[in-house]
Design a protein around this nucleic acid. Structure first.
Length: 429
RNA sequence: GUGAGUGUAGCUCAGUUGGUUAGAGCAUCGGAUUGUGGUUCCGAGGGUCGCGGGUUCGAGUCCCGUCUCUCACCCCA
């Protein structure tokens, strides 16, 4: 083979395409039934737009290039900046709440590994203009609605939920300076990913004071919302954050997805822009990276030059999800073949033109119909019919010449019977 | 970007301490079968052994480089 595919990309042969469509079609279907409207943007944007939020170092993770007018551009690594740009442009005319979704194809120049490629699809849903954590609950509901629709249950996946606002308030209460907050977030995020000893060392590097460190360790051992009461002395901000989480979990219970959701103080999310509720969705085997994640980012529009309007949302990629669905055998109902309804075969070359007419009529009537280019022995044509997984065969033979009849053969039972051509087509409609 | 492992037919893999013309199963195509398929039988095509150097009389096998894929780190929007 002369030219190989590019590192981290995938070829979608029909059987792979069937799986990709299964995933993406369901994303769209579930979004729509949850009240979200689809949008999309260009596949490349100004490089500066991506640097705005994440700084210059992001450039090494992007596929960037210059066009002939020396514009510095980049292939989109995420769609959220595009969303912010589009919403800002029409913010005064869009009815709120804005509930939008998209299934963009994204590229990131990272080294591929399990569940992460350089080109992938990511489902994004966002709700803009709602302060109430009901919007966060609805985003989580929509994600769970999707996962259930694929056949996954609360035995397979879990949504781990926490609050940036809560952690910020508590860390402030512990006396940790605002400047050091980002670094501590980074360490907390590692809690469930590294051995306890390593975690301890990382925390030591981030927080020099051992008393403060002890309080953080105490906090990280909290397993339920109720245990947070022991930090009640931490002031109004912390109390508000706890109340918000309680309210969220109440909504989740009312919506009937409580068994999918857990409070988990260790969920921080890497990025700086989250401001409130945050969550990540995991496969319960814990062997994979997150299936998806999201949360509240109330500064999103403002960061991109718009008004300060609250927003919450989530993203889910197709790579990890695909691995999970494959492992659980949930792709099994997907047909990789064409599922031809009628395969028309002809007993003699003199009937070829009549066969083509039948095919055309069947197709215009909306049936998936096909036939053999080569013709030849009836047995050969039926073999081809089996190869394309045809449900039924239409046999055009002597009966057609003599009585205008065709034979309909059911390919799974083997049963067959003659039928008048006119009657056959009138039944189709 | 750093580190480790890997690579033989479309797929899954054999291939002896380096020794003739590199094999099998599955898949594909053809035939048995000119009015009856999917399960049977027979046959065929398909490989510059990832690519490039080197050692050797001789390399799929040993050495170096490079690329891919896999796994971990960085990062994870």
């Amino acid at each position: 083979m002369e030219i190989q595919s590019v590192k981290g990309t995938r070829d979608f042969y029909p059987e792979d395409m069937a799986k990709r469509n299964f995933i993406a079609d369901l994303w769209k279907q579930v979004s729509v039934r949850n009240g979200f409207a689809e949008f999309d943007g260009p596949i490349f944007e100004y490089l500066a737009m991506y640097q705005l939020k994440s700084g210059d170092e992001i450039s090494s993770q992007l596929f960037s290039f210059e066009d002939r007018g020396e514009r510095k551009l980049a292939i989109r690594p995420e769609i959220t900046p595009t969303l912010a740009r589009m919403v800002n442009q029409r913010i005064n005319t869009l009815p709120r709440p804005i509930k939008w979704f998209s299934v963009p194809r994204l590229c990131r120049a990272e080294r591929p590994q399990k569940g992460r490629l350089r080109e992938f699809f990511q489902w994004n849903i966002d709700i803009i203009g709602v302060d109430d954590c009901l919007a966060d609950a609805e985003v989580i509901f929509c994600a769970v609605d999707y996962l259930q629709q694929t056949g996954l249950t609360s035995n397979d996946v879990v949504v781990r939920i926490s609050s940036r606002r809560l952690i910020a308030a508590l860390l402030e209460c512990f006396g940790i300076e605002k400047q050091g907050l980002e670094k501590v977030y980074g360490v907390l995020d590692k809690k469930s990913k590294v051995p306890a000893e390593t975690f301890g060392k990382m925390l030591e590097e981030a927080i020099s004071d051992s008393a403060k460190r002890q309080k953080v360790l105490e906090l990280m051992s909290v397993k339920t919302l109720i245990e947070l009461e022991s930090f009640a002395g931490c002031g109004e901000k912390a109390k508000e954050a706890v109340d918000e989480l309680k309210k969220l979990f109440n909504y989740l219970e009312i919506m009937g997805i409580k068994e999918f959701c857990r409070f988990d103080i260790g969920i921080v999310r890497g990025l700086a822009y989250y401001t409130g509720i945050v969550f990540e969705i995991y496969d319960k085997s814990e062997q994979l990276r997150a299936i998806g994640g999201g949360g509240r980012y109330d500064n999103l529009l403002a960061d991109f030059g718009g008004p300060k309007i609250s927003a919450t949302g989530m993203g889910m990629g197709d790579c990890v999800l695909g691995i999970v669905l494959e492992e659980k055998g949930l792709f099994k109902n997907i047909s990789e073949k064409n599922n031809i309804e009628y395969f028309v075969v002809y007993a003699d070359d003199s009937l070829k033109n009549e066969t083509l007419k039948l095919i055309a009529t069947l197709r215009r009537a909306g049936c998936k119909a096909d036939f053999s280019y080569k013709g030849g022995a009836l047995g050969k044509q039926l073999k081809q019919a089996s190869a394309v997984n045809a449900a039924k065969c239409v046999i055009v033979g002597d009966e057609f010449t003599q009585k205008k009849q065709i034979i309909i053969k059911n390919m799974s039972s083997g049963e067959q019977s003659p039928v008048d051509v006119g009657e056959f087509f009138s039944k189709l409609r």
